Amino acid sequence: MQEVGKSFNGKVAALRGMSLSVNEGDFISLLGPSGCGKSTALRLIAGLMRPTSGRITWEGGQSPDDLGVVFQEPTLMPWATVMDNVFLPFRLRGQSLASVRARIDEVLHLVGLDRFAGAYPRELSGGMKMRVSIARALVTNPRLILMDEPFAALDEITRQKLNNDLLGLKAATGCTVIFVTHSVFESVFLSDRILVMAPRPGRVVSEFTVDTPYPRDTSFRTSAEYGAIARATSDALMAAMGNTELEAAT
């Protein structure tokens, strides 16, 4: 992304001057309060909308054909089994279940749902539904996975477990991830780069690097390094929000 801006109705500036460079294998978190344009940035990268200004370019000149996207809600088909929900991207390509069954079985095993292939969404917990959504995003071996606050609605214990599992999946697949969150602690645990955003208009105001190597486990959450990065990130976020409030008052 190079100096990307996005306005709605020609008036409301959701993003202004946002630049972002993504390298293969990165785990980048977009961190900020509600209304700062995090989800808008993700939709622009996914090609679901076009920027008002600036440009988004890809290595090789073309955007990847198969981005994986995980939304805030699992968005599963309630009438379909776990297997059929994960099969959906292949169905849309006109491929048969038989031709991709091995790949679906592999991904369901990766997310710990191989025993639930025949279950329906109504039979699953919130965390399990999100695992199905992640499996659907992973199943086509995408170059980049975009995740829009996928764990925000879950309880803290389930959220931490899925954070651990997500890093395990990243290690197993080598995928690149851009992750939207409003949780400082989640961003520090998951990311190697954190972009702090401020609202009105949405823009990047700070960037932090988390050098702790993967894999990361529960011990990292209680480490001095984790605490220091979380404090610095939180301070940057609060400063960005404070500056926004001052700008609005003047």
Rank of each mutant, 00 (worst) to 15 (best):
R159P: 13
R159E: 14
R159W: 15
R159A: 07
Q160E: 15
N163C: 08
N163W: 08
N164W: 08
N164H: 14
N164T: 11
N164D: 14
D165C: 02
D165W: 12
D165N: 06
D165Y: 12
L166K: 08
L166T: 12
L166P: 13
L167G: 05
L167C: 05
G168C: 03
G168A: 10
G168M: 06
G168N: 12
L169Q: 03
T173S: 01
T173G: 02
T173D: 00
T173W: 09
G174F: 11
G174V: 11
G174K: 10
G174C: 05
T176P: 10
T176I: 11
I178V: 15
I178H: 09
F179H: 13
V180M: 04
V180S: 05
T181I: 14
T181M: 09
H182M: 02
H182G: 06
H182E: 09
F185E: 15
F185V: 12
E186V: 07
E186F: 08
E186N: 04
E186S: 05
S187V: 13
S187W: 08
S187E: 09
V188S: 04
V188D: 07
F189E: 08
L190P: 12
L190G: 07
S191G: 06
D192M: 00
R193K: 14
R193D: 01
R193I: 12
I194E: 07
L195P: 06
L195Q: 11
L195A: 15
V196T: 13
M197C: 07
M197R: 10
A198N: 01
A198S: 15
A198D: 00
P199H: 10
R200C: 04
P201A: 00
G202S: 02
R203A: 11
V204H: 07
V204C: 14
V204W: 13
V205L: 07
V205C: 09
S206P: 02
E207K: 05
E207L: 04
E207T: 14
E207F: 05
F208W: 08
F208S: 01
T209E: 12
V210H: 06
V210C: 08
D211L: 01
D211M: 00
D211A: 13
T212V: 11
T212Q: 10
T212M: 01
P213L: 00
Y214I: 03
P215S: 00
P215K: 01
P215D: 01
P215N: 02
R216M: 03
D217Q: 03
D217M: 00
